[in-house]
Amino acid sequence: MNALQEEALNTTHQESLPDPLQLAPETNSNNQLNLVRAEKKADLTKTKNPKNFDPAQNPERVKYLQERARSIILPIVAIFILGYLWETYSSQEGVVLPGPIKTFKESWYYIAHPFFDNGSNDKGLGWQLFSSLQRVGLGYGLASIIGILMGIIIGKSSIMFKALDPIFQVLRTIPPLAWLPLSLATFGEANPSAIFVIFITAVWPILINTAVGVMRIPSDYENVAQVYQLRGFRYFFLVLLPAASPYIFTGMRISIGMAWLAIVAAEMLTGGVGIGFFIWDSWNSSRMSDIIVSVIYVGLVGLILDRIVSYTAGFFGSKAET
């Protein structure tokens, strides 16, 4: 190969490689933006495996997929093992509790038709849950509004705090069901009494957490508010609410769990349409499988409620980070 040929080869080789800087000739910010985009693309958790994915070449990706698979498979395996143990226990002589297979068979109608409506109390589990959720919604909504308002009042005003806090500390330890007789005596009807029980259960965590959040607003922000004359609504929306919102949302998360627990118990005692009453009615009719199905549904709905509140909290909470 002579020198000319070598030179020719070299020049073509250089030409075939595009100059990366020429592709994006703009400012620094554009380069940075491209870097961020490239990073996002390389994010291990979000991309799908390309067709020529070689496991040996991408050990991190493989490890990540293994972990994901484990989180899905292991709970399923655990459920199956527990189900097997349950079935073994229930197959014994004289055991009233039906095993999973028997439960599924007996309650098939309720599982398959969640929204049937034959009038009065004879409704599908979907309607029963919906009815309970309505009561929780009302009671929890009331508890949120009053809890946040009162929390702000006793957090801000030292006089109100000293006056009311001892009373609150006593009231909040009273179990929700202990309020039921008083509530029934006051309201007469079952429905408002149940809603009141939800309210009185859910209000305390929200109230106390809000009060703590308000009391813990950093004095720096208070000073800023004073110097720059932030008053009334401006203070409320610019300083107080964002600073206290992590605490408020913590209180709301605790409350939704307690409210859901309370409604099932309250409905058992009050009757009507609702999942709690359904469970109690099934017990009275010795329909054990219906009870088991209902209880599982109650647990699942409780989980969903908790997730909704914490997702909402996460959405708003990101603003309050320093």
Binding site: D220, Y221, V224, V227
Partner: peptide, 26 residues
């Protein structure tokens, strides 16, 4: 306190949920 005596604090005391522009806009 009043607006005629503005304070710059040692720890900047910017409201963390507002942007730079909004902080000054306060």
């Amino acid at each position: 306190p009043g607006l005629d005596r503005a304070v710059v604090f040692q720890s900047h005391s910017l409201l963390p949920w507002l942007s730079v522009l909004d902080n000054v806009k306060v």
